[in-house]
Nucleic acid binder design. Structure first.
Lengths: 179, 179
DNA sequence: ATCAGCATGTAAGGCGTTACATGATTCA
DNA sequence: TGAATCATGTAACGCCTTACATGCTGAT
């Protein structure tokens, strides 16, 4: 795996369950992982290429049976080992970059209605994300005992817990600013 | 301001209160802003240079009175306008990238004690950040009525609310994994 | 003497986003 | 016919991190 390119670990993690195409990997990332990690085609395809050269994944012969030719990737023993090493490594980079908080922090220069508006936009996003995560949660609760669903469930509950905290803060912050 | 370089806005925001050197700007960012934004010298100095060329800030003659020569930056009318435009722009990029959640998500492959350990490391960080923020909060509560302290206070309470949510989640998640 | 803190800046390298290029199939 | 979805990939550009280079002052 490239030193700082965490997309490698994401791909390996997804491939540890099933063979996937680059396109499908993108879809998976946009799903339940989406609220704490992002990926793009310009990111994923080069990573798959590099990792194939390193022997972490194997590329299938092209499947032309429908639509454009597609290639499935399969994780190797070496890839699986690299994935496990990464999971077991305690060091993790957790980064929060919230432009909204920056706008609030420097919002003293403007009218407080501007900050209230910024909070409202943030609140609306949190509300939407929360409702998506609640659907995930309900579906996962039905199958918690099988496969890795328990782990997926934990990340979903993390999201729910934090978005609910955001909404509580939005409420309070708006009240304080409106005084 | 450069299109996607948000450090420009941070610098402008800080300079809107007082003239600062690049070194001091770094210090300010590492302080109360640190938990939702980062900056580095390799980031800040080039930004100051660009912004001077654009007329958003002015560079003072070097002050050699103590230690190495230093340069204070002052925000211009144009810089102040750019800052206000940015604050009033509803569009904001809020990005969360948590490698810990990635490790939890893919943790099904490993023993659950590995996930528990990952959570413990995360928990310890949250606890530390929370205690720092609580100190900020106490200090800010004494001066809430003056200057922009109210806005600083709001970002601090955001941090406290979310780190408390993290800790609650850590507790629950560890219990679920230990079953 | 030496280490920490103050202070400015550059350079290399890595990573990611966005847009672009290409092309097939399905459905309205 | 045109739009949407499936599908792969490249290229340009921008931004950030890290390491490096330099040098003063004050405390131990």
């Amino acid at each position: 795996m490239a030193k700082d390119r965490k997309i490698d670990a994401v791909i390996l993690g997804l491939l540890s369950h099933e063979d996937l195409t680059g396109y499908e990997i993108k879809k998976r990332i946009d799903g339940a992982i989406g609220f704490f990690w992002k990926g793009s085609f310009g990111n994923i395809y080069p990573a798959l290429n590099d990792m194939e050269k390193q022997g972490l994944v194997e590329k299938s012969g092209g499947d032309k049976s429908s639509g454009r030719e597609k290639f499935f990737y399969h994780i190797t023993k070496k890839g699986s080992d690299a994935l496990n090493d990464w999971i077991a490594d305690e060091h993790a980079v957790n980064e929060l970059k919230y432009e909204t908080l920056l706008k609030i922090y420097f919002g003293g220069a403007a009218d407080s209605s501007v900050s209230v508006r910024n909070i409202e936009v943030f609140e609306e996003q949190a509300r939407q994300n929360l409702s998506i995560l609640n659907v995930f949660k309900e579906n996962l609760e039905k199958v918690l005992d099988t496969g890795d669903h328990l782990h997926y469930y934990l990340t979903v509950t993390f999201g729910i817990e934090t978005y609910e905290a955001y909404l509580r803060w939005c409420d309070k912050a708006k009240k304080i600013l409106s005084k």
